[in-house]
């Protein structure tokens, strides 16, 4: 089955998914935010109810599609909407969140099967500074789920940081024996 190639950005509502996509997308991201109705509204007024969309143009060779997905368990079905042609996942963490890594724990619980299936990078965003302790806790959470992934602090507004995340995913695909057969991809 031939399909298009995609990268997915998953994370807490305030983790910076739309910002990441905007940093590398050739078009202004299309965002499907809606107002929050639970206690999340204390932290952020809106949340992604479907998916955010951006793209990287490759000229006549096509495009790489970028999708931001909500991390809440009730929206897990959205992953299946973009699964076909998915290359890898950027898992964003709001390093400034007052609730610590609770959101990451919930995301790992929700998406553990997908995170074993696709290469991913764990990216703490909005880190206040020295974050060795945070990254250690992230590593502990990954190991608790037997997940293996690089942990890279980013500023989601910086294109170079997001490019680095994409590069790591592509390296894992290329060298880790997880690249799709090129015949299975068609560039949209």
């Amino acid at each position: 089955m031939r399909t298009s190639a995609k990268l997915a950005f998953i994370g807490d509502p305030n983790a910076g998914k739309s910002t990441c996509i905007a940093a590398i997308s050739d078009i202004p991201p299309v965002v499907t935010d809606v107002g929050c109705t639970d206690d999340l509204a204390d932290v952020k007024q809106t949340t992604t109810a479907a998916l955010d969309y951006g793209e990287v143009g490759l000229g006549e060779q096509g495009r790489l599609l970028l999708y931001g997905l909500p991390c809440q368990a009730r929206f897990r079905f959205m992953f299946d909407v973009i699964r076909e042609g998915l290359l890898g996942i950027v898992l964003l963490v709001d390093a400034s969140a007052p609730h610590g890594l609770r959101g990451l724990e919930e995301t790992l619980e929700t998406y553990v099967r997908e995170l074993r299936e696709f290469p991913f990078v764990l990216a703490p965003n909005k880190s206040p500074g020295a974050d060795d302790a945070l990254k250690s806790r992230c590593l502990d959470l990954l190991r608790g789920h037997r997940l293996v992934a690089p942990i890279c602090t980013v500023d989601a507004r910086r294109k170079a940081d997001i490019v680095r995340l994409a590069e790591l995913i592509f390296l894992m695909l290329d060298l880790g024996g997880r690249a799709p057969a090129s015949g299975d991809l068609v560039w949209a």
């Binding site: 190639a5 590398i24 990287v56 143009g57 490759l58 060779q61 790489l64 170079a160 490019v163 680095r164 994409a166 590069e167 592509f170 390296l171 695909l173 290329d174 060298l175 880790g176 024996g177 997880r178 690249a179 799709p180 057969a181 090129s182 015949g183 991809l185």
Partner: peptide
């Protein structure tokens, strides 16, 4: 057992995306 290496078609895709985004490797 090692997973198979990527095919040459994939290498082209990697090159295109890497060139567009500015991969360092």
């Amino acid at each position: 057992r090692p997973a198979p290496a990527a095919d040459s078609g994939w290498r082209l895709i990697f090159h295109l995306v890497g060139r567009k985004l500015g991969f360092r490797t």
